[in-house]
Design a protein around this nucleic acid. Sequence first.
RNA 1: GGGCGUAUAGCUCAGUUGGCUAGAGCGCUUCGUUGACGUCGAAGAGGUCUCAGGUUCAAGUCCUGAUACGCCCACCA
Length: 890
Amino acid sequence: MKAKKTKKISIPKAYEPQKVEERIYKTWEKSGYFNPDKLPNKKSRKQKFFIPMPPPNATGILHMGHTLMLAIQDAQIRFHRMCGKKTLWIPGTDHASIATQNVVEKLLLKKGITKEDLGRKEFLKEVDKFVKNSKNTIKTQIKKMGSSCDWSRERYTLDKGMSEAVKTVFIKMYNDGLIYKGFQMVNWCPRCSSTLADDEVNHKEINGNLYYIKYPIKDGGFLTVATTRPETMLGDTALVVNPQDKRYLDFIGRTSVMPITKREIPVLADDYVDIEFGTGVLKVTPGHDPNDFTLGKKHKLDVIDIFDDKGKIDKKSAQYHNFEKYEGLDRQQARKKIVKDLQNEGYLIKIEPHKHNVGHCYRCETIIEPKVSSQWFVAVNKKIHLKNSKTKKSLKQKATEAVKSGKIQIIPKRFEKTYFHWMENLHDWCISRQIWFGHQIPAYDCLDCEEVIVAEKKPKACPKCKSKRIIQTPDTLDTWFSSGLWTFSTLGWPKNTKDLKEFHPADLMETGYDIIFFWVARMIIMSEYALGTIPFKKVYLHGLVRDAKGVKMSKSLGNVIDPLEMSEKYGADATRLSLIIGNSPGNDLKLSEEKIASFRNFSNKIFNIARYTILNSKPKKIISKNLTLADKWILKKLNTLNEELTEHYQNIELSQAGEKLREFIWGDLADWYVEISKTQKQDVLKDVLRQVLVLAHPLIPFLTEYLWELAGFKKGDKKLLIVEPWPKKIKLSSSKNVEQDFQMLKDVIVAIRNIRSEYKIEPKKKISAILHSKKRKTLFEHKEAIKLLAGLSDIQIEKSGKKPQNCAEAILKDSTLYIPMGDLIDPQKELTRIQKELKEAIEFRASIQRKLDNQEFIKKAPKHIVKQQEEKLKEQNKKIKNLEDKLRFF
RNA sequence: GGGCGUAUAGCUCAGUUGGCUAGAGCGCUUCGUUGACGUCGAAGAGGUCUCAGGUUCAAGUCCUGAUACGCCCACCA
């Protein structure tokens, strides 16, 4: 109970992460341990563990989503590194073609410059300049979070090696007939002036209208068409009705003279048309609707493209097809004007409000225009002989099998269904983009004979017509085409490198569920195609980080919580913990500054436990003899913690790992063991601290490494915590009953505290207690602890004895506690207390009794459950008897 | 139109294969300057586990249905 004098080692009173994090990170970097080739005990590292880091966009700044991914991956990497695996985490950045080009375009526009002003070459120089700069920013930020990734292997999706990989795959796919150029309906973003893949289009419900328009028929009569997009009528090339539709039988085969343009189009029959919808008459615009395109193909209709690349009514088309008066109007303007004209000329019958889904660009939110053009596609349904496959299979089949066979495991499992569903419905993937920034397609067009040549280098002459007028296709590739190669291109593919052989496939792919299709699916397709293997064994999908109210964070809403600001304020460890604890795969996370602050408190608590241990623990070396009940208890708890954490880390259940850690450190260690240790001549604090630091390190890297050093566990420059082997369980002899015995000790202390609280006894005031207990010896060992923790001046512990007078009492499992109150005793208070306790006990006993009276329960429930109930009953009976005895005195 | 998820204390969430007098953190109430920590400690209040059925000796946990909220996918003009 005498407070130990703290020695004069100067350790600050509170943890100041700002002062240590940067230094610790540099120490790690200098050690070389981020690099698997420089790890200690190299020979014994038989297993490997590899994570390719999802590359953040090169232009971005770090947001909570990144921080979350870094925290999870770093925890995994650190755990497996400590477990003795050869661990590799490759960092990198993504060039994010459309996104980056948009950003730079906007910046230039502020200076009044368009990209066309600069020309392709100069513009790309500008982009590169910009990327170079922001790449460094994000790199520094990744380091700030403590990420232990191998910077010597850092990659960029547009670096030389990557371009090599992209070219190789493209050419191989082309030669295998899996990449083709085709004239097809694609999603066109008029703002970006580029195509988009199907999954880059977001469908949103829009309150639109259905316009009913009269189409006059030659030789009399008219048909009424319902459309949501009247402006597309400029490109109509037919009307179609269902041949079963009796209303229109007479019209089939006749000709309509269209309103406005007065073009003549046929009335056709096709059972594609839904009789029920609208008027049952469909206007066909093969140039601007995917269905109409298919229908048009079937009926060999002309395709009229009425828009230019910016989504405005095209000049040439307007001249040719007789709608010059709309030339240059954008889609909205054209719609307005056409509706007005239709109305004036008496062709508009009515307008009905109509909800429908409209596609939007996922980058800039502009409404997508379906448009027919010549683009490059990956054929996903074409069956060929793929690597490591005996029979002919399509890319889609291979990618589906990879998951279905269990070779790839998706966490959480429910996303496997989503994945299959998406794969089943996958159409050919449009991979060409009319963007300047990106991997330019390795295809060359002969300007004289229009021959297309796919090759690594520009051919000297056209193989067909020998012309030398050859240019490279201006289009670039979809960003996801190159990031699809990420798991193996980062390892040096197409060269057959040592890294590739050693590390592929990755052990874990950790990314957001929002890019399961964009990226995860593409990586599976690409790896199966190029290498004939899976890209990774596990996919762990994290959710979105939202604000405290569950709203998506966005600059415009001003609800963004900045990870760097938070790390500066509360420490990177606290920021990481706030994202890990209370989070589960596939679910969104609500984050608030308060939550982060609460983990700062936790860090500080750990710091102070360590501080106390360093300054006061006795002895400084591991002991195993003469352990007290408390010593054995905390060591046993530590063993359990070790076991549980090991499993949680292995299964990527980091939230549970974090909670268990907090429970142990704050609950068991700080609130109980540290306090009790103050009454002991020697303790095991140092051993416990040592192991706790190891177990906590994957989740709390900075602080633990710092304390490791402070506590003197770091023996020699190379012995950093980051490479400390994962601890084995501590051997404990004779630890039977430790938990029950310690629980009894806790119960006694809590009971006294309770009485103090009820009687409002000042904490300063020391009182005495008398304890009659069957386990006298066990409690006696920690007599001083009871005194310290319950604020007693004195305690008598006897096997049994006479009931003392004027006491507050508490009935415990094997003991009865008396607190002499003298005049302070309030019989009424005691009576109420006992009565309340008795009532609860009786109710509880009744519920157990009911169970035990039930013959079915006795017959069918497992033996140990029945026994458990019987014991509970006994316990309650004893308690009730004691309480009733006490009542008799009142 | 198809599919999926969630519903437990004021808030954020745990609750493994059914055995629970239903837990934690934050918040709240009362009390406290016990030399590791006020970024702390002690004690406490607070829940018919969304609703209705069912299976079972036993249901927060499994099944069916309903309701609410959320998400994803989709070319019906």
